[in-house]
Simulated scan of single mutants.
Amino acid sequence: MEKKPKVKKGWLAVEVGLEDDEQGFQRFLIPISHLYHPLFQQLLDKAHEVYDYHTRGPLKLPCSVHDFLNIKRRVEKDSNHHHHHLPPTLAFQFHPC
């Protein structure tokens, strides 16, 4: 079994993927501050719908790795500009699980 690196303070391990995806879940480390961004809030709401937050180990996020990386890029871009209020037209749509 592969040993996972220890997560630094202020960071969170997440597993990203869809149940029916042949790639399975991929592990990422994100700053905890990302969780306060509206796009991550949407993703957390979706995780609650799918998993009810009762997962063992890292937080599971039900979206494709491609979608997650797009969200992560947008959050990082917004963080650099200190702007967390996105117009509704920019809301991210998740693919169904």
Rank of each mutant, 00 (worst) to 15 (best):
N70R: 15
H83A: 12
V50I: 11
E19V: 09
H81N: 14
G57Q: 00
H82V: 11
P96C: 12
D21Y: 09
D20I: 10
H83M: 12
T55M: 06
K8L: 08
M1T: 14
K9V: 09
H82G: 09
R74Y: 03
R73G: 10
Y36V: 07
H66R: 13
L35P: 00
G57H: 03
V50L: 09
G17H: 03
K6Q: 09
L69S: 04
P96I: 10
D67I: 06
S33T: 09
N70C: 14
H81R: 15
F68Q: 01
G17V: 02
A47K: 03
E19D: 09
E15Y: 01
S79W: 13
K46P: 00
L18C: 07
L61G: 02
F25A: 08
K72M: 03
H54L: 08
R56P: 06
R74F: 02
N70W: 11
K46Y: 06
S33V: 14
F68Y: 05
H82Q: 12
Q26G: 02
K6V: 14
E22D: 08
I71N: 05
D67Q: 15
R73D: 12
P88F: 10
K60N: 07
D78A: 10
F92E: 04
H81K: 13
F28G: 02
I71G: 03
L29S: 08
P87C: 14
P87K: 12
H37R: 00
L59T: 04
W11A: 05
P62C: 07
Q41R: 08
K6L: 12
Q23I: 11
V50E: 06
S33M: 08
E76R: 08
K46H: 06
P31H: 01
R74Q: 11
L43E: 02
H54R: 15
C97V: 13
D45C: 02
H83I: 07
L35W: 00
D78P: 13
H48A: 06
L18N: 05
L18E: 06
E76D: 10
K8P: 05
H83N: 13
H34R: 05
H37Q: 02
